[in-house]
Simulated scan of single mutants.
Amino acid sequence: MTLENLTIAAIELLKKLIETSSFSGEEDATATLISEWFITHNIPYKKVNNNIYATTKSFRESKPTLLLNSHHDTVKPNKGYTKNPFKAIIEEGKLYGLGSNDAGGALVSLLATFTHYYHQENLQYNLVFVASAEEENSGPHGLHSILDTIPKIDVAIVGEPTLMQLAIAEKGLVVFDAIVKGTPSHAAHPNTDNAIYNTIPVLEWFKNYTFKKTSKALGDVKMTVTQIDAGIQHNAVPAEVKLVVDVRVNDAYSNQDICDILEKESPCTSITPRGLLLNASSISSEHDLVKAGIAIGRGTYGSPTLSDQAVLSCPSLKLGPGDSTRSHTADEFIYISEIEEGIRLYIEILKQVII
């Protein structure tokens, strides 16, 4: 199939994906659509839960393996939509619809790229393509659940909207549940140990705390209190205040490092991480993939947003068509030209590395 026909087919698939609901954990129908692509192109594939994967025809265990990954689940549409989020609408070169930008454009572009290289012999790398599930909610049946099933990965390209610039590092994430305690009482009586008032200096501590290590690619660790919950009625002082703290971790720390620091230093009564799986990730600027991208005019940067990179232990590059600022917004869209460019640039970058 010519590159032009592959590109047309990829855009048609994206239209179908947009018009098929695929909320995290409910991706059965889009998994079927992706399976049909492989059947149409005579490519053997496997399905684990709603993750679909395939390897290039000339796969050899003696070669290093490059993962091409993007996700096919979406968030739920917000109330600001003026267009039908489940209708693929093309206007003025824009393809509108839920998941078009995050990350349908990258998904179909990587799928077209994998298909382009599927039959080629004597590649320097094996290619493994994974259309992953449950990325948006970091669910239990996402990419990390099949890493022991697919071939061992040496390096990865994770397809997310980056305007086809090279995200050579990505912040990790740890969400903490914290508690500030006090003495419960009736509001009419004196109380010098009011849990809500006790929370004021705690909030100031979180606001002003600075982690010592910075990162050239990702800057500082960013810590934000995002939720507060306390009290059940107007005349009762609660026994405790619950906080949720969102920490975006740079590549100078592991998530365990952050956990150890906050458990030791934070002024909360208790602070507990919900999980430590989503670590920061990066790839050397000297890696052949990065150098190949730079050679064709792509820039590098550090990404503050989370992706399936977080569950990979190998070097990984985030790269894809579309713009991250459009993700999760009302009337989400991607330019048709961005998909066309994405496929062309993916193929060109890989050509310098795997041929």
Results as ranks from 00 to 15, higher is better:
276 L>G: 05
221 V>R: 00
284 S>I: 11
29 A>D: 14
22 S>L: 09
97 G>D: 06
43 I>L: 03
322 G>V: 08
239 A>G: 15
205 W>E: 03
270 S>Q: 13
229 D>C: 08
88 A>R: 03
53 Y>K: 13
132 S>I: 06
145 S>F: 02
289 L>K: 02
66 L>Q: 10
130 V>C: 11
213 K>S: 02
296 I>W: 05
314 C>P: 05
355 I>H: 01
242 K>H: 04
282 S>P: 00
100 S>T: 10
15 K>N: 10
150 I>Q: 00
33 L>Y: 03
4 E>N: 02
297 G>R: 12
79 K>P: 01
235 N>E: 00
40 T>Q: 13
23 F>V: 12
108 V>W: 03
56 T>Y: 10
102 D>K: 12
6 L>M: 04
346 Y>Q: 06
87 K>E: 13
130 V>Q: 13
156 A>F: 04
82 T>F: 01
173 L>W: 15
86 F>E: 11
123 L>V: 14
126 N>A: 08
76 K>D: 03
192 T>A: 13
303 S>Y: 15
211 F>L: 04
117 Y>W: 08
249 V>I: 04
78 N>T: 10
142 G>C: 01
119 H>W: 10
237 V>F: 04
179 I>H: 00
49 N>D: 15
295 A>H: 12
145 S>E: 09
164 M>A: 14
149 T>G: 00
147 L>D: 06
83 K>Y: 10
111 L>K: 09
331 D>A: 00
181 K>Y: 09
58 S>E: 07
10 A>V: 01
280 A>G: 04
93 G>I: 13
113 T>V: 02
91 E>Q: 10
71 H>L: 08
164 M>D: 15
153 I>L: 05
7 T>M: 04
192 T>W: 09
308 D>A: 07
319 L>F: 15
66 L>G: 07
179 I>F: 00
62 S>E: 13
165 Q>K: 08
90 I>L: 03
178 A>S: 07
110 L>P: 04
96 Y>V: 03
333 F>Y: 15
33 L>N: 03
301 Y>A: 10
252 A>D: 11
337 S>P: 01
110 L>K: 06
308 D>R: 10
42 N>S: 15
123 L>W: 14
16 K>E: 12
231 G>K: 00
141 H>Q: 06
291 K>V: 06
210 T>N: 15
257 D>W: 04
10 A>S: 11
223 M>Q: 03
214 T>I: 04
206 F>P: 01
315 P>E: 09
229 D>L: 11
228 I>A: 09
301 Y>M: 14
252 A>H: 09
254 S>A: 05
99 G>C: 03
314 C>Y: 11
12 E>S: 13
33 L>M: 05
216 K>I: 09
52 I>L: 08
230 A>K: 07
328 H>I: 01
223 M>I: 10
256 Q>L: 15
55 T>V: 12
21 S>M: 09
53 Y>A: 07
109 S>T: 06
187 A>Q: 02
103 A>F: 12
162 T>Q: 11
185 S>V: 05
44 P>A: 01
63 K>N: 01
150 I>D: 02
108 V>F: 04
183 T>K: 12
55 T>L: 03
274 R>K: 15
326 R>K: 11
159 G>C: 08
212 K>N: 07
338 E>P: 05
134 E>I: 10
163 L>D: 15
6 L>T: 06
129 F>I: 14
278 L>Q: 07
319 L>Y: 13
150 I>Y: 02
85 P>D: 09
168 I>H: 10
49 N>H: 15
345 L>F: 12
267 P>M: 08
158 V>K: 11
